[in-house]
Design a binder for these strands. Structure first.
Lengths: 204, 204
DNA sequence: CAAATTTTTGACCGTTTGGACAAACGTTAG
DNA sequence: CTAACGTTTGTCCAAACGGTCAAAAATTTG
């Protein structure tokens, strides 16, 4: 998918590719795929367009590389949910991690949201395969926890959806959240407030 | 903002403008603003590009008209929340209405989500003004309900955010929801399942 | 050092896109 | 019927865009 189709990558290639991916994340997350231009990404990366195209085959290749990496990090928190752990603690940790990701990696969250909004043209197979399997597995764990009375009974799949929706909301809809909370309540503390609220909502 | 700057609009103008807006909603909600072309919209509306531009000044004008209308409908359910009503019933009705909108008007939801994701360049003033005022008012009502013990105590602003996030999730992330639920659980019943789950979550 | 290889760039190309325009077509009122 | 007005279209344009290419510049290697 990338230009240096040869064997190993040089130091410069590794560095420049990282630089490009960082710049592309910034640009893509702000304007979406179609709304972003190679020139914008090149400028953000501090290089010329042909130079950028020396490291990546094209716009699509950059985007795909970006989203592939993203998915790994995206699923990690759910993967860490442990059937052997204490249910309340496990759920609380999961919510915390997801809120921290919304706070620390909002660009990644928006990139992902954008892809899903457009119908997930590039990652649909992954959603129907790997993601579905993972969610089904964890839903089973949650269902068992609920049966044991450790969590309030509810549909485990929708339970997971609700955690996704509420936590990612603080990254994807950040502008709206800040606009509504205003300058005082909308400061940096909003993520801590959100985390506390969500723990109460899902565990109270 | 629109071509016929003259006084009143003819019957044909009203009809054709509606046709264009319907087509534009379809196209914009699928590809976003930058990802959509006037030609696509014109074709979806069954007319030529110059003809479409006879009714609207440009691509931007179509989009703005669309989003202006949208905001009205979008805020309506929250506006209907009545301080004099029964808290449980009012919240339940609000959730129901929002889920119904996600089910019946997913294109509108995605259009809105797209605009917010891009930083709300066209509606930021509205978010900071009208929306914030409305939310503050309703948050006050909810806070009072909580003080009376009619609802579980929590931050009312984040409470509203959570309802927005969870309900709109079923429109904006529909592809993902269906992929994860699979063919059986992901059928038409998913909205009813979601509604029941959310009532339990927010009112249980 | 010089040769080989990698990296960078300016110039260029074909396509797509938003939009303009005048001419043609249709409709309606006097 | 015809003049005025509203509607539709074919044609055209300039800018933006994704991408190519050959040659120059820099770096690595022998």
């Amino acid at each position: 998918m990338d230009k240096p189709a040869g064997r190993k990558r040089t130091r410069i290639q590794r560095e420049k590719r990282e630089l490009i991916l960082e710049a592309a994340l910034e640009v893509f997350s702000q304007h979406g795929f179609r709304g972003s231009t190679i020139d914008q990404i090149a400028e953000a990366a501090g290089m010329s367009k042909p130079n950028l195209l020396y490291y990546f085959k094209g716009k699509e290749a950059i985007f795909v590389t970006l989203i592939d990496r993203l998915m790994e990090a995206w699923l990690a928190p759910l993967r860490e949910m442990d059937a052997a752990g204490d249910p309340q603690t496990e759920i609380r940790s999961y919510i915390r991690r997801k809120i921290e990701m919304a706070r620390d990696f909002p660009r990644e969250s928006r990139l992902f949201a954008n892809e899903i909004l457009q119908g997930a043209p590039r990652i649909l197979p992954l959603l129907e395969g790997e993601l579905k399997e993972l969610v089904d597995e964890k839903a089973g764990i949650i269902r068992e926890w609920m049966r044991q009375g450790k969590l309030k009974k509810a549909d485990p799949h929708h339970f997971i959806f609700a955690i996704w929706a509420t936590t990612q909301h603080y990254a994807d809809f950040d502008v709206q959240v800040r606009a509504v909370l205003g300058p005082d309540k909308g400061g940096e503390g909003r993520f801590e407030d959100a985390a506390r609220f969500l723990e109460g909502l899902f565990l109270g």
